[in-house]
Design a protein around this nucleic acid. Sequence first.
DNA 1: TCCATACTTGACAATTATAGTAAGGTATGT
DNA 2: ACATACCTTACTATAATTGTCAAGTATGGA
Lengths: 154, 154
Amino acid sequence: MRLSTRAQYAVRAMVDLSLYSEGRPVSLKEISRREEIPLNYLEQLFFRLKKGQIVTSVRGPGGGYVLARQEDAIKVGEIVVTVEEQLNPVACLDEGDRSCRREAHCVTHFVWQGLGERIRGFLDSITLADLTREARNRPAGEGNIEKGACKPTG
Amino acid sequence: MRLSTRAQYAVRAMVDLSLYSEGRPVSLKEISRREEIPLNYLEQLFFRLKKGQIVTSVRGPGGGYVLARQEDAIKVGEIVVTVEEQLNPVACLDEGDRSCRREAHCVTHFVWQGLGERIRGFLDSITLADLTREARNRPAGEGNIEKGACKPTG
DNA sequence: TCCATACTTGACAATTATAGTAAGGTATGT
DNA sequence: ACATACCTTACTATAATTGTCAAGTATGGA
Ligand code: FES
Ligand code: FES
């Protein structure tokens, strides 16, 4: 029951972007340095985030990414879903899945369905604004995490 | 954000056991046939379930497994946790993890912590009794699922 | 114009976790 | 004794994920 690091990175990167933006575009290079996320990997994430219309991009020198909306209109759940395809605990809940056309017979199906709803509900109840507010109330140096933390292994 | 098939299988197997037991021990062979779960795999699961004191075993011919407690005293969350080690969305929440000793600096930590609590809370709110009641209210043939359903792939 | 910056995009390798298989052992009722 | 059925460990194959590489495009400024 693990969240992908993609999702963890994406949320952290979004908090970073939000914190250091101040209206101007923020380059991935900066975010990469502060949050210690590989630049190439960040590029993949922001490719998705852009498609998901959570950020917009500015090309050329001095360019970077900007939030597509206000901090308080971006839910954590959106970010996670955007980089992680689906947020369902089991495959048969995925859109377009045909492995089980008779959920009516599956006793456990409704359990996982309910679980998925709770997960989404919780993550959608938190906005980027909540996280940046939290971050500003802290001493914190560079980046919003401790170096090397939040890694899936180690 | 996927649940392991171990967990899915375990819950289904427990429902099956509960449904067909009627006081007598149920052999894994039976469960394996009805639920279409490989016998060897089931053995691994029940090895864990026994250690977790959710079932007890009876050896020898005519033996099998029996619920260690009443249906309504066994939570789905217990079953899942027992076969799946931990139920945390990120590694730093795991007991004994040392990757981050300063969660105070990590802005996103509390989000994942809250998520984990919701997940556990929800799964602990459902008991085996709820599932068997559900199952008995259905036409259903052999096993409590449709053949081939609930598989992670396909 | 030319160049440096920084986004854009696809392909791919390495690592890890999971699912599933195999095999041998132990207890026990008949 | 013998068949049944639990007990336990070890291993392999497969899939997903993480992370790297590389080549391209748009743009602002010297
Ligand atoms: S059909 Fe969805 S869990 Fe079985
Ligand atoms: S320390 Fe737990 S998520 Fe960063």
